[in-house]
């Protein structure tokens, strides 16, 4: 069963520790711009939405990558970028319908969540459990429920 990051915007306090953790673990710097997770603030309604790669089943980024630098692990479901193979055409950045891929010119490479090989540091450091790492296909088929809940949302964005 694939595990993934589950977000609860109602629990997020907007402290942005996840952004700093990600950028520090991956790029040795505390720069939210180099982070694969971003918190979008909606102060007027008191909501903060942490956004990160959804590790899609049929990833657009992988489809447009002609050099095979992006692969999806069939076991863990993680969509990973091989920096050695990447030629920097940045098509994946434009192709992601959720905008969850960015390009860092400082590191000359794309920034994308790879779930830290099964131990996402953002989840570990989140003080309010707004991001959790858990089984996506639980016995209650939660994933399907969520998908139904958001069908109108994602239907408009994804194909």
């Amino acid at each position: 069963m694939a595990k993934g990051i589950v977000i609860s915007p109602d629990k997020c306090t907007g402290c942005r520790i996840c952004e700093l953790a990600c950028s520090f673990i991956k790029n040795d710097s505390f720069n939210p711009k180099d982070s694969a997770i971003a918190v979008l603030p909606y102060d007027s309604v008191g909501l903060q939405v942490p956004m990160t790669c959804l590790q899609c089943d049929d990833p657009h980024c992988m489809t447009v990558c002609t050099v095979g630098a992006i692969t999806k692990d069939p076991k863990t479901g993680v969509v990973k970028v091989d920096d050695e193979k990447c030629i920097g055409c940045k098509m994946c950045v434009s192709a992601c319908p959720f905008g969850n891929m960015t390009y860092s010119s400082r590191h000359e490479g794309v920034v994308k969540c790879d779930l830290c090989d099964g131990e996402p540091q953002c989840v570990k450091l989140c003080p309010s459990d707004a991001i959790e790492y858990k089984e996506l296909d639980g016995p209650l088929n939660k994933r399907k429920n969520i998908a139904n809940l958001f069908s109108d949302v994602f239907g408009e964005v994804a194909e």
Partner: peptide, 10 residues
């Protein structure tokens, strides 16, 4: 695009 999805989430 990220902001757009975020808004829908919101």
């Amino acid at each position: 695009s990220r902001r757009l999805v975020g808004e829908k989430f919101k």
